[in-house]
Design a binder for these strands. Structure first.
Lengths: 334, 334
DNA sequence: CGGTATCGGGATAACGTTATCTCAATCGGC
DNA sequence: GCCGATTGAGATAACGTTATCCCGATACCG
């Protein structure tokens, strides 16, 4: 059929069907102004040659690519939002192509710029780092971009975030309702936006609750020794914590790992749901993000912006849910 | 600078720099035959206008896109191979764009065909289902494709697989070496290639070992009730199993979940390593795939085929490693 | 000083589509 | 039976690049 090395083009199809190039285009695009007999001839030629339209040329001519880019922190990690994103995009007839930024500013920039040069219709970005200046000219040139999970600091860009503050407040209130007075927080590096927001919310809770203890809040990069030390600090002394809130799924794992062999009756509420939550004893109570809503919202916002770039910038906060499973309902031991 | 709505093109840059279109192209592509002064003028114009080359046009003209597609089962799941793939591709100056097939034959086909129409230089595919006939014309037209994790059944296509058989043999021998005589296997749906291969390997081990018990091997779609029943069957009666091999990471989770509250001293070896493995007590002994090697190999094979499509088809098997962590070293209880 | 390498850079033609314009043929109406 | 409207389909010009060709100017050599 097709000879190896070069794919057939519309010209080849037209020649074979004995029609004009333009007619092939019309058939391919289901233009109704082509006679039934010609349509048949062209279809046959397409099948004979295994013709496949070249989207590069289509997109160049059309101006749009029907493609959205997703620049996420790590493709190899679990990312439930991405599933919702792909679903919603497919329903809209758009293709999502994803790439990792590897939590590296250089790579993020490279990925986003590559997508821009490929003229993707829009980009979903989980922004990292502080300096997103490279985005300015792209946005000025008409790039449609929606930030997910974190905002693009310093730039007026659409974003969809989880309600981190409410999540921490909910967790805190839940523990208080179960009788806890001394609650500790183990969080991630506060240079990360979400970590910073959650830690801040926790501090506000402590203040509002009247309590205050320096050894009750520990944030910083995730390292086993640091977490070990933080737990030691929080759980020792006369005013030891009776409950712990962890700042994200990775920290939940690390903290739970430390508790594996202990029998302390410490209550735990984790931020972010995960597969691990129902593996533990008792099951882990978590504050869960609404992945589906985040993904759907992100795609909706992106499509809106693509359709009308003059749409006012929106910052949407998606509610979180507390899922009580046992670990957060343990009463204080003392 | 750039006026909103239309991105500047080479023509705009050329006009601004007062040079010919071709000269801008030369500067962009670092052609040495351009005088230093002109290079400067062109560079300035590019900066002024925030010019970004349109890769659609470049790719169309060049014939290649410098892009590899990765069609994986689920982007939202953990997929360590993908990280190695992205790394290796980046090192080679190629961009990897990934999309989910959602374990759905229809979607797989749609994704692969979309990548073909976009004229990606090559595709990495985790094939699902049985019928990959749609690939035949694409391959004939020169598509470079490498199957990962599973082969494309019925088609002569490059593939890189884990050594499933050796993995099961290693796990089995490990348990035998620790004194186990009655070993059970809980596996996934045998319509899945890897599940079928692992189950077959297990059956061979049982035969070679002289043992044989129908209630020792249970495969089928992953459903909690089925797994519960399988465990009941394997662990009851006078010839109850003293050790279990699980067929993949998901099954390890499900099985371990059942054991959470029991105190049976059953040894467990899981197929696939995961974050969960070191959360348990004792830590889970696993047969781990070499994700980095799989990813690197896949990219190397794909690049080789792209460079020379007449390269003979290769099927590479990557060794697996047993990671003894405790759960697989438990002696038989009786 | 004339002829020929050498070099820098411009005109023009692809790459494979789609959109605009044009035109021939058919049809209906008075 | 003639004219305007309608329909089907071809010629041609973009889209934004890169590659081929070519030409003018300088440099070098005999």
């Amino acid at each position: 059929m097709a000879r190896r090395g070069r794919r057939p083009t519309m010209v080849d199809v037209a020649r074979r069907a004995g029609v004009a190039l333009r007619t092939v285009s019309r058939v391919v695009n289901d233009d109704v102004t082509v006679g039934a007999e010609l349509v048949e001839r062209v279809r046959a030629a397409i099948a004979d040659l295994d013709y496949r339209p070249d989207e590069r040329a289509r997109h160049l001519r059309l101006g749009v690519t029907g493609t959205l880019g997703a620049a996420v922190r790590q493709l190899s990690h679990v990312n439930p939002v991405l599933r919702a994103v792909e679903r919603a995009a497919r329903a809209a007839g758009l293709m999502v192509l994803a790439a990792s930024t590897e939590d590296d500013e250089k790579i993020e920039r490279h990925v986003v710029e590559s997508m821009c040069r490929r003229r993707f219709d829009g980009i979903l970005l989980e922004p990292i780092g502080a300096d997103h200046g490279y985005l300015v000219p792209e946005l000025a040139a008409g790039l449609s971009l929606v930030a997910v999970d974190r905002p693009v600091l310093g730039l007026e860009v659409d974003c969809v975030l989880s309600d981190n503050m409410a999540g921490i407040e909910t967790a805190f209130a839940h523990l208080v309702a179960h009788g806890h007075q001394r609650i500790a927080y183990i969080g991630d590096d506060e240079r990360i936006y979400t970590a910073q927001e959650r830690a801040t919310a926790f501090r506000a809770c402590v203040r509002a609750h009247g309590g205050a203890s320096a050894h009750m809040i520990h944030t910083g990069p995730i390292m086993p020794e640091r977490i070990q030390a933080a737990l030691e600090s929080a759980l020792s002394g006369p005013d030891a914590a009776t409950a712990i809130i962890t700042g994200n799924a990775t920290l939940s794992v690390e903290v739970v790992r430390r508790f594996r062999d202990r029998t302390d009756d410490v209550a735990i509420v984790g931020f972010d749901d995960s597969e691990l939550a129902t593996l533990l004893r008792p099951d882990l109570t978590v504050v869960a993000q609404d992945d589906a809503a985040i993904g759907d919202t992100a795609i909706t916002m992106l499509r809106t912006r693509i359709a009308d770039p003059s749409t006012p910038v929106r910052k949407v906060t998606v509610p979180v849910t507390l899922r009580a499973r046992g670990s957060g309902e343990t009463p204080p031991k003392s």
